[in-house]
């Protein structure tokens, strides 16, 4: 899904999606819930107070286990 598609689904400016991706803007509860709804996932899977581990870290951890 492109940034523009997600922005259209959320009714926001595509730049806002970019700010969210970059972690430069913390969304309101309403926008966070809308984003989670678009992805069909619980909101805590999309947003967290702690930074998510990168894909490389997750794959690395699986390899070690």
């Amino acid at each position: 899904m492109s940034r523009k598609d997600l922005a259209e689904a959320l009714g926001v400016n595509p730049q806002t999606v970019g700010y969210l991706e970059r972690g430069d803007y913390a969304p309101s509860v309403e926008l966070a819930l809308k984003i989670a709804n678009v992805f069909g996932a619980p909101v805590e899977m999309v947003f967290s107070l702690k930074p998510f581990a990168s894909l490389a870290q997750i794959i690395g951890n699986k390899g070690e286990a």
Partner: peptide
């Protein structure tokens, strides 16, 4: 006509 980030 603005979204919440633009308004902030």
């Amino acid at each position: 006509k603005l979204d919440e980030r633009e308004l902030a």
